[in-house]
Simulated assay, not measured.
Amino acid sequence: MENIDIKDFSIQPEIKLSELPTHIDLEAKASKVEKQLLKTRRNLGEMQNKLYAHSKYSVLVCIQGMDTSGKDSLIREVFKDFNVRGVNCYSFKKPTLLELQQDFLWRHYKRLPARGKYAVFNRSHYENVLISRVHPKIVLNENLPHINQVEDLSEEFWNKRLRQINQFEQIIAENGTIIFKFFLNISKDEQKNRLLRRLNKPHKNWKFAPEDIEERQLWNNYTSAYEKAINATSKSYAPWYNIPADDKPTARYLVAKILEERMSTFSDIKYPESDLDKTIKFYKDKLDNE
C-alpha cells in the first residue's frame, strides 16, 4: 500500500479546484484500505482518550464538500472508535430566528469543543461564504446594517467575511484548539453517479431531493466560491486538506491518517502523572481487608 505523506494533501494557496485530484490510487485492494482504516481509527480512539485525560487541547474538524461527497458516512466511519463522551458532531442547517439575530459565527462559537474533546462540523461556518455566496438572498435574512439588497453584497463584503473567519480560527487556535479542515473533492461525473444511485435504489430514495438537481446546475458557482474561500483561509494554524473523494473508502482512510499523523506531532499531550503509586498498597490492603 502506498505510503501517505499528509503534506501532499495540504492545500497551499493559490489553487484551482480543477487541478486538484478527485481520485488517488493507493495501490491496494479495497479490503486492505478498509483494514488500514480500522487500525488507524483504533489508534485515533486511543489518542482521543489521551487528549481527554490531558484536557489542555481541543480539536475542531470541519468537513466540507459538494452534495453527495460522502460527509455523513465519512464521519460515521472515521470516528466510530471514539469514546462518545469525547466527541460531538454538529450538522449546521438553516439558521434559526435566534441565530439570525446574532453575528454569523455565533452559532458556531457555541458548538466549539471543550478542552479534551473533539467537535466535528458536518458543514461549518464556511457555509456563510459558500451557499450564501451562491444564493446571496440568504444573507438578507441576517438583517445586516447597510445590506438592503443583493446588489449591496460586494466583493469587499465577502473578503471581510473571510477575514473574520481567519480571525475566528486564529483566536481559537491560539487558545488550544487544533483545527482540521477537509474538502471532500468529488468529480461532477461521480456526483451524477451517486445521484443516480439514490434514484435507482429504493432504500436510498429518501436521500434524494429535487433541489439536488437544481444545485448541481450551479456546480461552477460553487467551485468558484470554494476556491476563493479555501485560498483565503488555508493557514498554518488552520490548514485545508484536499481529500480525493471519488472513492469513499479511500477518502475515509485519508482523513483518518491525516488526523493520526498530525495529532501525533503534539508530543506534550500525555496522560497526567499520578501519585497513586505511593498509596496503591494502602488502598489494596484496605480493599482486601473489607
Rank of each mutant, 00 (worst) to 15 (best):
V139Y: 03
N175K: 14
T96D: 01
L51F: 02
E34L: 09
L100K: 04
K160A: 12
R252W: 01
R42F: 10
Y57A: 07
R161K: 07
R42I: 09
Y283C: 04
H108E: 00
Q167S: 13
I131L: 12
I230L: 01
N141E: 07
H203E: 07
T265F: 06
L17R: 07
L60A: 11
K284A: 15
V61P: 01
F168K: 09
E211M: 11
A256F: 06
T68M: 01
N166V: 14
I243E: 02
S10M: 15
K110R: 13
Q149D: 10
E215D: 05
Y118G: 09
K50Y: 08
H108R: 01
K281T: 14
S234C: 13
N3L: 08
D268K: 04
N83G: 10
A238H: 01
R194F: 06
H203C: 08
D277T: 13
R163W: 05
K188T: 10
V120K: 00
N88W: 03
A30S: 05
E215V: 15
E151G: 04
I6F: 07
A53H: 14
Q164H: 10
R107Y: 11
H54T: 12
E155C: 08
I243D: 00
E211Q: 14
S124E: 06
A30F: 04
F104Q: 00
N220M: 07
A225V: 03
Q149W: 15
Q191H: 06
S154I: 12
Y253H: 14
R123D: 01
T223K: 13
N185C: 05
E99Y: 02
L74Q: 03
R163S: 15
K93M: 06
F208A: 13
R262S: 14
R216P: 02
F157G: 13
A256W: 05
N83Y: 11
A238Y: 00
I6D: 00
I131V: 15
P249N: 09
I75N: 00
P249L: 14
Y109N: 08
R133Q: 09
E174W: 00
I165C: 09
L218H: 08
P113M: 03
L17W: 02
S73D: 06
K235I: 05
S58K: 07
D103G: 07
F82C: 14
I138C: 01
I186R: 01
N83T: 07
Y283M: 11
G70P: 00
E290S: 10
R161T: 07
E169C: 03
K35E: 11
S264Q: 08
T250P: 01
N88T: 10
I280N: 00
L287Q: 15
N141I: 06
R163Q: 09
N143C: 08
P239R: 06
I75H: 00
N221V: 05
I171N: 15
N49E: 15
E261Y: 03
Y271T: 11
L184R: 04
A232Q: 05
D67Q: 11
F266E: 00
R133L: 04
Q101L: 03
D25T: 08
Q191G: 04
L97E: 15
N43W: 05
N175L: 12
Q191Y: 03
Y57M: 08
V87D: 02
L144D: 00
Y222M: 11
K39F: 03
R262C: 12
P244H: 03
R163K: 14
S124I: 09
L140G: 11
H23E: 14
T22S: 11
K248V: 10
R76H: 13
K248G: 03
D72H: 08
S10C: 15
L100R: 06
